[in-house]
Design a binder for these strands. Sequence first.
DNA 1: GACTATCATTTGCAAACGCAATTATTGTTG
DNA 2: CAACAATAATTGCGTTTGCAAATGATAGTC
Lengths: 159, 159
Amino acid sequence: MYRLTNSFPYLLNRVGVRMGELFSRRIAGYGVTLPMYRVMAALWEIGDQRLGDLAAMTTIEISTLSRLIGEMKRRGLVTRTRLKDNARTVAINLTPKGRTLVEELIPIAIHFEEVAVRDFPSKNILDLKTVLAEIYQSLNSIEPEIEEANKARKAAKAK
Amino acid sequence: MYRLTNSFPYLLNRVGVRMGELFSRRIAGYGVTLPMYRVMAALWEIGDQRLGDLAAMTTIEISTLSRLIGEMKRRGLVTRTRLKDNARTVAINLTPKGRTLVEELIPIAIHFEEVAVRDFPSKNILDLKTVLAEIYQSLNSIEPEIEEANKARKAAKAK
DNA sequence: GACTATCATTTGCAAACGCAATTATTGTTG
DNA sequence: CAACAATAATTGCGTTTGCAAATGATAGTC
């Protein structure tokens, strides 16, 4: 018998949403939203990114990200410059101010994660992370299959 | 050295967002959004729920859910009735139409999940689910601790 | 049994979001 | 090299979201 509450997407989403809520509130006092933190931490890890790459890295929809970067630039956290050799792309970077801020936030993120998983053997968490990374990869390969199922349905309906 | 892309919340969110996107598109042809599916599947599992309980079960913010239920009622998928004995709460239920629809969608959800995790030993997935459920529980217990850290920071700043 | 506190839901409002269309630039090809 | 296709980012627009305030209803208190 199927139960939503035992399905993988449900269990996953629930933890994700809840952690997001908690961490959002944790960093709100620094004047930063969670998506902003994600962008800064992503740029701290890999700087000089194009918008599309940053969108892929953060799983933020590209138009949403474009506006978010606009706001963050306005706040002096990042720079966004058109490339000279390829002016249809932009390069996004942390400003010194953004770097200082994210380096203040990262220890908080580390502590948050530690507290969240401290009741579990670190081996379990490590395995969990590995599986999550692998599942993410495999989702890309099933995407065409999913779309296929849609098309099949549409075709069936059309006739 | 910290890396966002190796942090638990990041890995989790990424898979959650991606699965949500894919499944959303998968069911869009049925005229249903992902939050609507979650509500219907939750009600299919446990009917006659109050708004607050349904919010907790689906991890949908209560005001958002209130409006969503309004829309779903308008579409004839659910009923929302004030109780006679306690008129400050409402009971939400699937209509026959809603039930029929969700019973059409559930096999799709099952198939989706199967495809998403088919490359992994089912033991791993089972463990993963267990850990996710446990982490969710433990998040509730750390919430006060997180809030505490906020207060401490505010106090420090105030002086 | 009026007054206040508490609980459950809804609503006002501004911000965030996602899709589709648009703009800007570069790449291709006949 | 002109026309067209492809790529990258932005913008228009309607929808969804979340917080805080308001509403509606019940429970406790003196």
